[in-house]
């Protein structure tokens, strides 16, 4: 699905990612954990194509294509989805209209016709249930006035609507209470299948009780310093990041 080789990236001349190597196959869930400032968000932003980040070395192959050469919109159309750590509020743009435009642009990219209004509404109804998103929220302006939990659920709702092949959840658990966390996790678990994959970026082990990863990677100082199975997350929770900081 995605192969990241020796990825280096910097922001305003400061190197943040210092050689990331990672391979994610279809059907897998990978968790990336790390202390603050380790480069977790930089990695997700670089993969999604935010311009503020400069890739200085390395390559990323996504479904056979050179990801780094694609515009952010083409990455999305190819099936990459970033659930934002801080979803943006966009006053005046209706959540539903924007999703319809997004869905249709993705369909057009793959040579498909526009979705009919009827099918679209049915899809919205179905996917809303998945994350228990109030119908009223779906019709409001994108994220405007949403609570932290509602914003994160809206991200998962969008993910459900767009059906990406690779989803990157960037600290989706931050700011969520336990109930919202379960709803979000339940949404992800329902959407998970053998054809898609997830990279779950998180600071805490908590989310991983609900979205169980196949692999856990520890990111520190812009590099993956340790990889293992789901037990690595528990170990990390018990010892704390200080142990890692001492070691590397």
């Amino acid at each position: 699905m995605i192969t990241i080789k020796n990825l280096h990236a910097s922001v305003e001349g400061k190197e943040i990612l210092r050689g990331i190597n990672l391979e994610v196959k279809a059907g897998e869930v990978h968790a990336i954990m790390g202390p603050n400032g380790s480069g977790k968000s930089t990695l997700s932003n670089v993969l999604a194509g935010r311009e503020d980040y400069e890739v200085t070395a390395g390559e990323v192959i996504f479904n056979g294509k050179n990801l780094l050469e694609l515009s952010p919109e083409d990455r999305a159309r190819e099936g990459l989805f970033l659930a934002f750590q801080y979803p943006v509020e966009i006053p005046g743009v209706s959540n539903i209209n924007f999703l319809k435009t997004a869905l249709n642009e993705i369909r057009a990219y793959h040579g498909k016709n526009e979705i009919t209004a009827k099918d679209f509404l049915a899809l919205v109804k179905e996917k809303q249930k998945l994350v228990e998103l109030d119908g009223k929220l779906a019709n409001r302006s994108v994220n405007e006035g949403f609570s932290g939990g509602e914003k994160k659920r809206n991200e998962i709702f969008q993910m459900a609507m767009l059906e990406p092949t690779l989803s990157i959840l960037d600290e989706t658990d931050s700011g969520l209470d336990i109930d919202a966390l379960k709803i979000v996790a339940n949404g992800v678990n329902t959407l998970k299948n053998k054809n898609n994959a997830y990279i779950v970026i998180t600071h805490y082990q908590r989310l991983l009780d609900y979205i169980v990863p196949d692999f856990v990677h520890i990111l520190y100082n812009g590099k993956i310093v340790q990889s293992g199975g789901k037990e690595l997350a528990l170990e990390l929770e018990a010892k704390g990041y200080d142990e890692i900081k001492k070691q590397f």
């Binding site: 999604a48 743009v93 435009t101 997004a102 993705i106």
Partner: peptide
Amino acid sequence: FYLNARGLGKESAKKLLLSAF
């Protein structure tokens, strides 16, 4: 960027934001 990251092209994202304005 948020709109682009959801698959909207540069032009249609800009249009959507200006219409909202």
